[in-house]
Design a protein around this nucleic acid. Structure first.
Length: 117
DNA sequence: GGGGTGACAATTC
DNA sequence: GGAATTGCCACCC
């Protein structure tokens, strides 16, 4: 039987893949990513991965469940996040993003952006 | 094996 | 919307 530490490694990879799957112009919450990756309740793991991972993950598309940024306003990281989001077409109002943008789902994405043309 | 920590979440006031 | 509280689970000492 496989070792349990290998399970942890796979979990990290699954979450990483999910984060990388976020399309430009959309955002997702930590819990949402964890749930999509198949690990509900592992929101903190997503945060740890984003911090530790050296891969070019779109960390700027990851927000808190309350649609606000994960880091305190004014921090360099936060400013860069807002800037990149605006560059991708994501509205940022008073440190928050529109509900429409936050309610991203794989199905909804294809439904809205696919046949929309 | 125990205890503190965290790029979080959900609930409540 | 904001602040406080509790639950959660992997990680580090």
């Amino acid at each position: 039987m496989p070792k349990d530490n290998k399970q942890s490694e796979r979990m990290t990879q699954e979450i990483t893949a999910t984060i990388r799957a976020i399309p430009a112009g959309c955002v997702a919450s930590y819990g949402q990513l964890a749930e999509m990756a198949g690990y509900p309740g592992r929101a903190r793991l997503v945060g740890r991965i984003l911090r530790e991972s050296d891969e070019p993950l779109p960390w700027h598309r990851v927000l808190r469940s309350n649609r606000q940024s994960a880091f305190p306003a004014g921090s360099e990281l936060h400013q860069k996040q807002v800037q990149r989001l605006l560059d991708e077409g994501v509205l940022f109002i008073s440190g928050r993003v529109p509900k429409k943008t936050f309610e991203w789902k794989p199905d909804l994405d294809a439904l809205l952006w696919g046949p929309l043309s």
